[in-house]
């Protein structure tokens, strides 16, 4: 249909405007906090050896953290959907022809670009802080690209799915607790093989572990593989698990989102505002 292309174009324009808002003024401080904190951690761990690999903990953490930031896109989607639902931005989209479509495209553009900015903030200075990253090898970048794309699609589609189910910014806040737990057991900040096997199994269900593994496969030298499960980069499994999450998310998210937006109306937005006021007051 002829209306889809203009809606996509409007959505991209929307994403660019939101991106500018996300990186100006006080917002910028919040955006820089976590990538900079990660760099500080990498800096202090740059000389800590991991037994038998020759690589340091700092070198291992850096690519893992890239994977973690991709996964955090999910949390960003959930938080922003909750906020936009509360202030009526989503209802405005619903009241406008193709508005939800443009809204969603804008959101994915803005969050993907935000994540790319995080990755650049971590990777570019990080490459000078630690030794042994294979950033000159073209193969590294091929692996990085497909892991990144699959990861962005999978995590943001799941974000839309969860964001449609979680009704309030408060609920979105609670979601970060299990996510932090998941980061702790996903081998981002310490080799996963040091954990009990049942925790390893839990971690392997979710995309965070595979995003970390994929990024380590891209940038770490081959001998670092000895601290991974099965002493393998398991690229096929990485693609399969991330791909499965992406498909589940892409199939379910539009259905759940449609169900959620169908129930939005002026009185619901007003109701939520009153509840929020009561909590504050």
């Amino acid at each position: 249909m002829t209306t889809i292309a203009p809606a996509l174009r409007a959505g991209v324009g929307r994403g660019v405007i939101e991106l500018r808002q996300a990186f100006t003024g006080m917002e910028l401080v919040g955006q820089l906090l976590w990538p900079v904190a990660t760099l500080v951690a990498v800096y202090f761990l740059r000389d800590v050896d991991i037994g038998g690999t020759g690589a340091t903990l700092g070198t291992m953490i850096l690519p893992g953290a890239l994977g973690m930031f991709v996964a955090l896109g999910m949390l960003l989607v959930v938080q922003q959907l909750a906020a936009d639902r509360e202030d009526g931005t989503l209802l405005r989209a619903k009241a406008t022809p193709n508005g939800i479509r443009a809204y969603l495209v804008g959101k994915l553009v803005q969050i993907s670009a935000t994540i790319l900015a995080y990755l650049a903030i971590v990777l570019i200075p990080g490459a000078f802080l630690v030794e042994g990253l294979e950033i000159a090898d073209p193969n590294s970048w091929i692996t990085f690209t497909w892991v990144l794309v699959l990861g962005l699609v999978a995590t943001q589609a799941i974000g839309v799915l969860l964001g449609s189910v979680i009704a309030t910014p408060r609920g979105a806040g609670y979601l970060s607790i299990p996510i932090l737990g998941l980061i702790a057991i996903s081998g981002i900040f310490a080799p996963i093989t040091g954990l009990p096997e049942w925790l390893q199994w839990i971690a392997q269900v979710f995309p965070i572990y595979w995003l970390g593994l994929g990024m380590r496969a891209a940038f770490l030298p081959d001998d670092a593989v000895v601290v991974e499960i099965g002493e393998s980069w398991r690229q096929f499994e990485t693609a399969a698990v991330l791909g499965a999450w992406a498909i589940v998310g892409l199939v379910l998210a539009p259905m759940v989102l449609r169900r959620m937006t169908r129930r939005e109306s002026g009185s619901r937005v007003a109701e939520r505002r009153e509840q929020a006021m009561r909590r504050v007051g």
């Binding site: 002829t2 203009p6 022809p97």
Partner: peptide
């Protein structure tokens, strides 16, 4: 900016 964005979605109609 907001008005122009909203308006752009009506252009196809």
């Amino acid at each position: 900016e907001l008005l122009a964005f909203q308006g752009s979605l009506y252009a196809p109609y």
